[in-house]
C-alpha cells in the first residue's frame, strides 16, 4: 500500500565549494532567514524545514509555491536522493520519478536502448528491458524515432519517452516535476488519461507545478511551500482559493509557467 509519511523532515544544503567567508559576510548579514551556520560553523541553506505531512493511497497532491520554495528538493527527498538531516521519512510503495527526464539517459543511444538502460538502472534484466521497450514504444508514439539516437530528439519527444518509461513500470507512487508540460496537446490528453488510470489504481501522485490549471484538474490536495516550510495544506480549492475569473486558456493548451 502506498504511503508517504514525513515527520519534522529537514534538508540542508551546505555551501561547500564557494568562498565561505565572503558568503558569510554578504548573506548572513542581509538575509538571515534560510542561510545559517550549522554546528560545524558551515554555511547551510535550509531547503526544507520541519515538514510534517502524510499522503495516503489515492491522493493526488500538488506541491505549489514560488521558485526556490523547495518543491523539487522535496520530490528528490521522497525519491530517496537526499538523506534528511533531521526528522523521519517513511515511503512505502514502488516509486516512479519524473524529476529530470534527461537523468540516466545516454544521448548517443537510441530511444529503445535508453529504455533498456533505464530498466537496468531499476535492477531489471536486459530481457525485461526489451519487453518494457515494446510497451513504451506503444505509448510514446515515437514511431521510427525510437530506433534513433535520442540526441536528435526534440524536447517534446524526450518528454514523451521519459513519461512513457516512468509510467510503463506502473509505479505505486509517481513523483513529477513540471517539465512534463512540454508535451504537445495530443500527448497531454493521453498522459492525462494514463495518469487518471494510475491514480484510480489507488496510487499516489505528487506533482510540483506552477500551473494552477493542472493543479485544479488533476489534484485533490495541495501543499503550499514557502521558504522550505509548509504554509498551507488541504483540498485544492481551499489552498488555491476560488478559480480566478481570468480568460481560460484554449483546451489542451497550457499557459506558460507563471
Amino acid at each position: 500500500m502506498a504511503l508517504i509519511d514525513a515527520a519534522g523532515l529537514a534538508i540542508e544544503f551546505p555551501l561547500y565549494h564557494h568562498n565561505a567567508r565572503s558568503l558569510k559576510q554578504r548573506l548572513i548579514s542581509s538575509s538571515g532567514l534560510r542561510l545559517r551556520k550549522d554546528d560545524d560553523n558551515r554555511i547551510v541553506v535550509a531547503a526544507l524545514r520541519d515538514l510534517t505531512f502524510r499522503i495516503g493511497k489515492g491522493e493526488r497532491v500538488a506541491l505549489v509555491g514560488p521558485n526556490g520554495a523547495g518543491k523539487t528538493t522535496l520530490l528528490r527527498t521522497v525519491a530517496g536522493v537526499y538523506e534528511p538531516v533531521a526528522g523521519r521519512l517513511l515511503v512505502e510503495g514502488e516509486i516512479g520519478s519524473l524529476i529530470d527526464p534527461a537523468a540516466g539517459m545516454d544521448p548517443l543511444l537510441t530511444g529503445r536502448e535508453n529504455v533498456i538502460l533505464r530498466a537496468l538502472y531499476r535492477g531489471m534484466t536486459e530481457a525485461e528491458g526489451r519487453a518494457l521497450a515494446e510497451e513504451v514504444a506503444g505509448f510514446a508514439g515515437l514511431g521510427d524515432f525510437l530506433d534513433m539516437p535520442i540526441r536528435g530528439y526534440s524536447a517534446g519527444m524526450n518528454v514523451r519517452l521519459a513519461f512513457a518509461m516512468a509510467t510503463a513500470m506502473t509505479p505505486e507512487i509517481l513523483l513529477m516535476d513540471e517539465w512534463f508540460l512540454a508535451g504537445d496537446a495530443e500527448f497531454m490528453a493521453r498522459a492525462e488519461e494514463r495518469l487518471a488510470k494510475l491514480v484510480t489504481g489507488a496510487e499516489i501522485l505528487l506533482i510540483a507545478t506552477h500551473d494552477m490549471g493542472v493543479v485544479r484538474k488533476w489534484c485533490t490536495r495541495a501543499i503550499k511551500l514557502e521558504g522550505g516550510r509548509i504554509v498551507a495544506d488541504g483540498p485544492v480549492a481551499e489552498v488555491l482559493g476560488p478559480v480566478p475569473p481570468a480568460p481560460t486558456p484554449q483546451p489542451g493548451l497550457r499557459s506558460a509557467m507563471s
Binding site: 534528511p84 517513511l90 515511503v91 510503495g93 514502488e94 520519478s97 537523468a103 533505464r118
Partner: peptide
C-alpha cells in the same frame, strides 16, 4: 530512477 526492488524506504535522522 528509483529502486524498484526496495518498496519500503524508511529514514529516521
Amino acid at each position: 530512477m528509483p529502486n524498484a526492488t526496495r518498496h519500503v524506504h524508511l529514514f529516521d535522522a
